[in-house]
């Protein structure tokens, strides 16, 4: 009987989806993702931070190379939430703000070390090699016209062909 109970517990646990994030709770991840999307928004039909999977990149970075930056994220996010409540007392979360409200919120904190780190991580997640979890389907590289190739062929640009 004891063995069967044990297996039942294991089975039940296996039915739970694994946590999606290693460094954030689900609500934290949603808030950080909303901030990242404000830094690099989907605009004019070009994908933004969300489509690129920037939150995946940040989550992995904070669980690895940048683990020492977790406290900055904790306190930084708290400060941004305070700022949000001050600016928009009726709001419930960053993710629930309107686009213009999120822009106003980030303007209010853009000189903080947390914002500077978040901008850095957002850009990294948008342009990193996709193996790091961001730049999904190379959307970052496509946005700026960067083609990653081992061999490029001349002419590279318009001016090599242009008569003087």
């Amino acid at each position: 009987m004891a063995a069967a109970t044990c297996w039942q517990q294991v089975w039940a646990a296996a039915q739970q989806p694994p946590p999606r994030f290693r460094s954030f709770t689900e609500p934290e991840a949603a808030e950080i993702a909303a901030l990242a999307e404000t830094i690099l928004p989907e605009d004019d039909g070009t994908p933004g931070a969300k489509t690129a999977g920037v939150i995946r990149f940040i989550d992995a970075a904070l669980a690895g190379h940048d683990e020492h930056k977790r406290p900055l994220y904790r306190t930084g996010l708290q400060q941004v939430q305070q700022q949000r409540r001050a600016l928009f007392p009726d709001s419930s979360s960053i993710a629930a703000l309107l686009t213009d409200q999120r822009i106003a919120l980030l303007r209010a904190v853009e000189d903080t070390p947390f914002f500077s780190q978040l901008r850095r991580h957002t850009v990294m997640g948008f342009f990193c090699h996709p193996k790091y979890g961001g730049n999904r389907d190379q959307v970052g590289w496509k946005h700026i016209g960067f083609e990653p190739k081992m061999h490029h062929h001349h002419p590279f640009g318009a001016y090599e062909q242009e008569p003087e």
Binding site: T38, P41, D43, D44, L106, V123, G140, H143, I144, F146
Partner: peptide
């Protein structure tokens, strides 16, 4: 390179994040 360009490539008197900045880096990189 792309990341360094997006982080530091735009003039400091222009926006450094948001839609306009994103448009600028998209147009200018090449």
């Amino acid at each position: 390179y792309p990341m360094t360009f997006a982080l530091d490539g735009m003039p400091k008197d222009e926006p450094q994040w948001g839609a306009e900045w994103k448009k600028n880096i998209g147009y200018r990189y090449t």
